[in-house]
Write a protein that binds this DNA or RNA. Structure first.
Lengths: 413, 413
DNA sequence: TTGTCGAGGACAAAGGTTTGTCCTCGGCTC
DNA sequence: GAGCCGAGGACAAACCTTTGTCCTCGACAA
């Protein structure tokens, strides 16, 4: 009795809903018998004709168990609370979709709460939903890292079943995350193989846990690969991306440190929103992508294929993340022993979606911001060169662009 | 007792939740007294010291009323079910945010259900949530129009409180919609004032109610303004937009009918996803925006300001829509007489967000697709003309672009 | 002195399910 | 014929609140 019936039995409007006692009366048995039969209690044996009659009557009356009464008795509501920061970033949408889907498969409803993003507040703010028995557990997708000073402190620990989605909580064993380091390495290996030596990562504020982990992974990976890395943090908005890119360009033009004022030749951007800003800034600085700067988005979205210059991206298994988080939470809810709790890392393979924003680094001259104001030498100006050697790819897709590996949103399953 | 307390009283892990009877026992009164005091029942008078002691004990024990038991008794759950098509289109995110916000203000929780987009299914599919007393009412944001053949038929009518959001349901009086005609007119008036005479609307499938209404409004408004209109329907995806734009261009090149094979000079696009496709197609056809084609997005999004050519848009009051829908639904839930039901049209002013994708129509020669394959005469190729007469605007924003009227996502309220 | 009245509260019945326990009865074994 | 056993169910106690009704007691009026 978890999934809704394909066609709910019609119920006369105005009449009260059918209850166990109504069926019991009609059949001529006790409600407990009806309950056991309808719930398939194996401990109960009934005569076949009674069994049959109970089911028939239930269908006739369009019986639906009162979830409230059932939950009250069972101490289990069958609902999950999903605490989510309603960012515009499409990643949450995909995550949410994965979670909703899985929860409904497993017979759970999901309530959504918008995160108030109030760091001063203990995460227990949402516990009231569980305390009021509205939900059995919490799916915490708020993105902020637990501030260091509260790390491990008492108030960070929730006494109710919960799971941190796409972030790490204050305690171990309740996190469901993706392999951010692998995503970063996918980017780095790709551009390193093409010969890039100076790379950048533009991402959100360090307070965001995924960002923190990506930056860490990038630093580590660049050290072993002998790449020079610049990490820039900014708001997860178009404006933030724009501003970070500006900083990157300025830094490139004013020599300081060992880098010697040289600009990175490849850049990864942590979110779609920021990507738009970065691209605008690059455009403003007359740095053509990918000739002067290779670009990789760490958010895959279908719109990337349709941009001015289609942007290569790393596709993360977001739906799987949501789905796995629901599974993990339900496991914690239904578990007898809480010892089984362990962090989950989504192993679903992530992939590089190759488009046109990555190329070899500018071979001859090093691009610097000061030289960038002059017309870029290698830029093919399409309208002026009709018989371009690199024709349609830049700005004139002749066939409909399409993401090679992005699954189209499936209508079913 | 609607909003969560700012700081929930800490409760020892492992101990059972505090109940009314616990407080009653501690204070030395009956549970009914505690209930009435805590609920502020004005019919009850208690001695001040008892009153005080009850509240103190409740706070001490971190009492939270069991929402299940309360709902069971009151026949009212305080939860709303939001049936939403989880499209990538950001409009749903904004709508959802508005609804969540308002619902929480009014003390309601919101459960989200993903729409199965199964037209064959009666809308009652989601009624099970109400039938099981999980929710008090339905917020139906599924976008499909009620198919004509089921219009008014019995199964389309829901016996449970519900409201159609951003669409019209089969019966009147339960719709909460925005003024789509006004949005269309905003676009038309703007481009008509600039001298455009042939306009186009690229939008989703006619089965989507908003699309239907927009198309209708466009036809009507164009008739009175003596504009020639082309309406194209396509999937609400980048690919759909691309394909529709291709159709538009083909139609422009093969003269048929009175239009004489001339292309529209201004085009509105119904959704952000489609917009990307349309822009890609225009780029592919060497039709510069706005020189050869003015473009207006009927979805406002901040990323529009950061595109290759920043796109003018119509900003719709989506958050207000969600908020008003919640209000309307709660009114229906709490109403004694269902006669008060009436359709709601959001009157929040919508506005044109002026960017750079709209200009006067190409004055001299008419642009046709056949001529468009030649290098567009008026296109300024920036890298080739460093001292361009139209400098930074096209592709080099010198300051960070920003939407003039788009409210930044507020942290509070 | 009796009756009235209001303050202050107790009692108990819902609300719909679940589930542990108990009962009855026919058939079987010894 | 007594005892046992299992099938087939009935009973009732929860689960936690809410709310209509009733009770008691002191103050006050007649």
């Amino acid at each position: 009795m978890t999934a809704p019936p394909p066609v709910p039995a019609p119920r006369k409007a105005g009449r009260r809903a059918s209850r166990l006692v109504d069926i019991a009366e009609a059949v001529g048995v006790h409600t407990s018998t009806v309950s056991r039969v309808l719930n398939g209690d194996p401990a109960q044996s009934v005569r076949p004709e009674i069994y049959e009659k109970i089911w028939r009557t239930a269908r006739q009356q369009g019986y639906r168990p009162n979830a409230l009464a059932r939950a009250l008795k069972r101490r289990h509501t069958g609902a999950l609370a999903f605490v989510i920061p309603l960012l515009r970033n499409p990643i949450w949408v995909r995550l949410q979709r994965g979670a909703l889907q899985r929860a409904s498969e497993r017979g759970y409803a999901v309530m959504i709460i918008e995160d108030e993003v109030d760091e001063a507040q203990p995460p227990a703010t949402y516990r009231y939903l569980v305390d009021e028995s509205r939900a059995d557990g919490l799916l915490l997708a708020t993105s902020l890292r637990i501030p260091a000073h509260t790390e491990g402190s008492a108030h960070g620990l929730l006494a109710v079943p919960h799971v941190y989605v796409n972030r790490r909580g204050p305690e171990r064993g309740n996190d469901v995350v993706m392999d951010e380091p692998a995503a970063v390495r996918l980017f780095l290996d790709h551009v390193a193989a093409l010969g890039h030596q100076r790379v950048a990562l533009i991402d959100g504020p360090v307070e965001i846990d995924t960002v923190h982990r990506r930056a860490l992974a990038a630093r580590r990976a660049c050290a072993t690969r002998d790449l020079h890395l610049t990490v820039l943090h900014a708001d997860v908005t178009e404006e933030g991306g724009w501003e970070a890119a500006q900083r990157l360009l300025r830094r490139g033009s004013t020599p300081d440190g060992v880098a010697g004022g040289t600009l990175p030749t490849a850049c990864a951007v942590g979110s779609l929103n920021q990507l738009f800003g970065v691209m605008a800034a690059l455009r403003g600085a007359r740095l053509p992508v990918p000739e002067a700067m290779s670009l990789v988005s760490l958010d895959e979205d279908e719109c990337l294929a349709f941009l001015d210059v289609p942007v290569t991206s790393v596709a993360m298994p977001l739906a799987e993340l949501g789905s796995a988080a629901v599974d993990a939470l339900i496991a914690r809810i239904e578990a007898q022993d809480p010892v089984t709790a362990a962090d989950v890392m989504i192993r679903e393979p992530m992939s590089l979606v190759h488009r046109d924003s990555v190329a070899r680094p500018p071979g001859a001259g090093l691009w610097t911001a000061s030289r960038a104001s002059a017309p870029p030498p290698r830029l093919t100006c399409l309208p002026c060169r009709t018989s371009s050697a690199q024709p349609a790819r830049r700005s004139a897709p002749s066939a409909c662009p399409r993401s090679p590996t992005t699954p189209r949103s499936p209508s079913k399953s």
